[in-house]
Amino acid sequence: MSQAVLDKLKARFGAAILETHSDFGDDTALVDAKQWRAIGEFLRQDPACEFDLPVDLCGVDYPRRLPRMEVVLHLYSTTRRHRVRLKARVGDEDMEGAELDSLVAVWPGLNWLEREVYDMSGVRFRGHPDLRRILMYPEFVGHPLQKTYPAQRTQPLVPYRTEDEAGVPLEKQAPFGPDEGMPFGRRALPRSEES
């Protein structure tokens, strides 16, 4: 439906549009991270695009691919009724250079979403007015949705009671067996890849 938008982007930005596809009806453009801000402004202001609603912003970690972190922005136009998905790839193995220009000046609604991506994935947004953690607590170290974050690592704010303090066993009691919990997904990357 918004193939026209992709064509417009390619005509306007040329080599900065690295690839496009429309798989499953979702028009997607992978763009040069350096042009992130300019493309955002264009999509917001161009009368034929007029994307006025930033639906979602998220980070996806592909630890075996470089650049490693993919930032995905979903846009919708309430006037033109079309959608587009923008992607940009940033960051090396150690998340060096995982930076993007903030689009808060273009869509104020992205303020908290960019904070969430920063908190969960560790992408820093240049020019964000208030880039703090939003879901995790300030004491939290690391970014939990990076694939290199160890699945078993917790960072309690209140130190756990020991069994000596409690005077009773604190291991999960029946009917809460040790297998209570997620039966899958406890595998982190091999130890050499953990930070």
Binding site: P144, R153, Y160, R161, L170, K172, F176, E180, G181, M182
Partner: peptide, 21 residues
């Protein structure tokens, strides 16, 4: 509240008995 349930991850206390009796 008893054991953390299926939230076996970085965000959830695995049972409140880790914090209070």
């Amino acid at each position: 509240a008893s054991s953390g349930g299926f939230y076996d991850n970085y965000t959830t206390v695995p049972g409140i008995d880790k914090v209070i009796p």
